[in-house]
Design a protein around this nucleic acid. Structure first.
Lengths: 259, 259
DNA sequence: CTCAATTTGTTCGTATGTATG
DNA sequence: ACATACATACGAACAAATTGA
């Protein structure tokens, strides 16, 4: 079917891990339905063009992960309830963003060598005089799924240090009347976990991540809020209404709208 | 510095590949500046807690990728110009989407066993009577970066079969006056390459991908266009203006706006 | 010019992991 | 389960090129 052995040359990842990840995917996407009997070892051998033992190693991995159960003489079966992935919907508008952030469970992390300034890119305004640096980890059911690295303009921070220490910064900013936001945007790319990230998110080194950069710019074109957020890739999803600008002609009254 | 060997237990990917991907990241993010001398082998040994040979294997990989040059007696140096990644900006509005699609270089792929119907999810309207299935690969500089799997309602297709065969379907739809679009949305998640995908995109099996699902629904709540698009993860980027709905109060006059 | 220090490059031996048939 | 081949990883020793004192 597929020339897996050639793919192997390209990737250098052990074959049985590659096979396991393809099978894991089939379970998670329900190409192999929950509870269903998956193809026999012989069929899998043929499909992936690998030896019997290699398929077995792959099956072993997925058994340990609880995604497969095998039974001698009967066959191998997909798990009844595969984990729900992509539960976290990345916000695409200010209002939704603020709303979604309210329920955040986060834990502040101490940083020993905080960077003094963020490095701004094109279209991200100008640097403020000074920043505070905050790092936190976001949790769902005691499982970490995101790391926030935030540069917050110090004069904003000083207006409510306690609030900023206790609540998500965006919530605090959204509730204050004395912060003027002219631009707010978010950039998303796919990256991979470095050692520090893999440690905090408890994922493999090099595992895919979603890297979100959220920047708020005030009316003086100063970047007052620069957040680099790293999510584990299987936690998140992004939904875009392509015709949104035609629909929300009235638009929600937001503080961000004030000039 | 980092307990790489423990991370290794979790991931099972060969150590030298893990080391290589951490280093690759440092180059691409310019933590190691272009042209700069990177730490010596001895220092890297110490930082990653691995043997000399393992660091060398990692360096070899990056040398082959053109990201590092080493010179005996002098040191190892980061490449002058690391490749630009994330060049393809995923559209977040209809107008931008249509605009960006115009320059597409794509090649149709024959499909032997086309699925009769797409599987619709919640909020994706209802099935049309019948569909045609089209598959194509998108290229930049002769390098593939995206695969499109499209279900197009047959009655739409029949209105201009030649156009649909030769041009991107969205362009054709956007230019026709006789297609009413009520909803258009796009969902993005991070996935990983299965054998067929890794083959077409020439990436490793299991390498991260961006999976975009773009759905158009007409005024009868029928899903007339369902595209599953798979991009290689390092090609794409997503930029969201969180305050867009407040700005474009007037909005572009689009055909999609007609009712 | 020579010498020593630095740094990359190569090789050996050994142990374990991966993959086939 | 076995025999075989090759890949991965370690540690250590040595060779070769570069630099600067």
């Amino acid at each position: 079917m597929f020339e897996l052995s050639k793919v192997y040359d390209r990737s250098r990842v052990p074959l049985y891990i590659q096979v396991a990840s393809v099978m894991r995917r089939r379970i998670e996407t329900k190409q192999w339905h929950p509870g269903q009997k998956i193809p026999t070892l012989v069929e899998l051998e043929r499909e992936f063009q690998v030896a019997r033992v290699t398929v077995r190693q792959a099956v072993d991995i997925l058994r340990e992960e609880g995604l497969l159960r095998s039974q001698q003489g009967r066959g191998t079966f997909a798990a009844e309830k595969p984990v729900d992935r992509h539960w976290f919907k990345l916000a695409t508008t200010w209002d939704v963003l603020i709303e979604s952030i309210k329920n955040n469970v986060l834990k502040r992390i101490k940083v020993d060598n905080p960077p003094q300034f963020p490095t701004l890119r094109e279209g991200e305004g100008e640097l403020a005089d000074s920043y505070v640096f905050l790092r936190s980890v976001q949790y769902k059911d005691a499982e970490p799924y995101g790391i926030v690295n935030l540069h917050l303009a110090k004069d904003i921070y000083k207006r409510a240090p306690d609030a900023f220490r206790q609540h998500p910064a965006l919530t605090v900013i959204a509730e204050r009347k004395d912060v003027d936001i002219q631009h707010a945007h978010q950039t998303v790319v796919i990256g991979s976990a470095d050692p520090a990230t893999s440690d905090l998110l408890q994922i493999a080194l090099g595992a895919p991540t979603a890297e979100c950069r959220c920047v708020l710019i005030d009316r003086n074109n100063v970047a007052i809020y620069i957040a680099d957020i790293i999510y584990r890739s299987d936690a998140i999803q992004l939904h875009i209404d392509l015709l949104a600008h035609l629909r929300s002609s009235s638009g929600g009254r937001t503080k961000a709208a004030r000039r």
